[in-house]
Computed example of a mutant assay.
Amino acid sequence: MSEPLFVETVLVPVDGSDESVTAIEYAVEIAEKYDAAVHVVYVLGEELVRGIETDTVDREAVASEAEAFAEAASETAAGTGVEVTSSSAYGFSRTQKTRHPGSAVLDCAEEVDADFLVIPREPSTDGPGDVLERAAEYVLLYASQPVLST
Score class of each variant (00 low, 15 high):
V41E: 02
V21D: 07
T22K: 12
V49H: 08
A61D: 13
D113A: 12
G102A: 07
T150Q: 02
G91A: 13
V112K: 09
G91Q: 11
A114K: 11
A136Y: 03
V57D: 04
S124E: 15
T9C: 11
G127C: 01
A61N: 03
A136K: 14
R99S: 04
A143G: 03
A70F: 09
D126P: 00
G79V: 10
S88D: 00
H39V: 05
T125V: 03
A63Y: 01
A104N: 09
E46K: 14
Q96S: 12
A70N: 02
A143L: 14
R94L: 15
Y138Q: 07
V147M: 10
I30S: 00
V49C: 02
I52T: 05
A109H: 09
G91F: 14
G91N: 07
F92L: 05
M1D: 12
P120A: 07
T76G: 01
E29G: 08
E137Y: 14
G51C: 13
E29L: 11
F116T: 08
A135P: 02
A37W: 10
T80E: 02
R50V: 15
D126A: 12
L48E: 06
I52L: 15
E83W: 02
D55G: 07
V12G: 00
G129A: 05
V14S: 01
V49F: 05
G16A: 03
G129E: 14
Y90N: 12
E111C: 02
I30Q: 01
E53L: 11
P128K: 10
K33C: 01
